[in-house]
Amino acid sequence: MAVAAAVPDHLFNLRNNFYLGSYQAAINNSDLPHLSPDDAIERDCLVYRSYIALGSYQLVINEIDSNAATPLQAVKLLALYLSNPHDKESTISSLKEWLADPAIGNNAILRLIAGTIFMHEEDYNEALKHTNAGGTMELNALNVQIFIKMHRSDYAERQLRVMQQIDEDHTLTQLANAWLNLAVGGSKIQEAYLIFQDFSEKYPMTTLILNGKAVCCMHMGNFDEAETLLLEALNKDAKDPETLANLVVCSLHLGKSSSRYLSQLKLTHPEHILVKRSSAAEDSFERALQTVA
């Protein structure tokens, strides 16, 4: 029996750029000819999600109109959610309405955005309601992230095995493997480092790859190397929240002042978990001072 010729994946490079954090490259190289209607929608979703990752929420909100396809409307919801942290309720309400609609509720991008938003809300059970069925590599990878957040590395490992059976060499499978190795710790840290090292040899350096390597270095006690990697990441994106947060931690371990990085993080990402924890610690310290004053 003749084997059907493999259909070329026109979006491979675009997806890869997005997964590895090369957001501007994803945008710049998105003018792809001869795409099917479905591929064109996926391309537009990846481009707009890249703009979201770069913080250009308003551009996405302005450009996606009410006649756009469901996946694009879902991406617009994510931009609305992230653009106004003080009015999340209306966005979440719209999201729940769409998820309850039998005509569109099972759309893979809508479920992915739902999982992302509920993970931001730290409502992991609600996130899993929409992501757990999987169906795409991105949904599977998001499941791994959610299980790690829930401190359930056993479930994350099970999900990773599913991804490995589908495509062991897929960028998201490799990333999920690295995330899980970091969560498990111990001897697995070296394995995670090698995955990020492999990415850095194959692809242009991004803040995502540099932060991945730096976190591995910190786990292994190599704070000088971690600082070098993080400063390189800061040169690429001075407002990246993970770079700033990791520099705060790294500086403390090196006995250096971390106040400038923490101030930058507070200014650019006031909702970041490190900012919240730092503020809570400061409040507790102030209350303790008042009790002995």
Rank of each mutant, 00 (worst) to 15 (best):
T171G: 05
S30A: 14
K76I: 07
L95D: 00
H86K: 13
E89Y: 13
S50V: 09
V275S: 04
I61R: 13
L78I: 05
N28A: 13
H170Y: 14
L54R: 15
H269K: 13
V47G: 02
Y81G: 01
S50N: 05
A178G: 02
N181A: 15
L247N: 01
N28P: 04
Q164S: 12
L110S: 03
V144L: 06
T291M: 14
V162K: 13
Y57T: 04
A178S: 09
M119Y: 07
Y155H: 14
N181K: 13
D283H: 08
M137A: 05
D39W: 06
Q24G: 11
A26I: 04
L35W: 03
K266C: 10
S257A: 13
N177L: 12
E225G: 08
G134K: 06
Q159A: 10
E232P: 06
A214G: 02
S56M: 12
S93E: 10
A178M: 07
N211V: 03
L139H: 02
G135F: 10
S258A: 15
Q197V: 03
D123Y: 15
Y203C: 08
N125C: 07
H34N: 10
L32Y: 06
L20Y: 00
A245E: 01
F223H: 08
A68N: 11
S279N: 14
V184A: 09
K239E: 15
M218Y: 02
I195D: 01
I113M: 05
S259Q: 12
M150E: 13
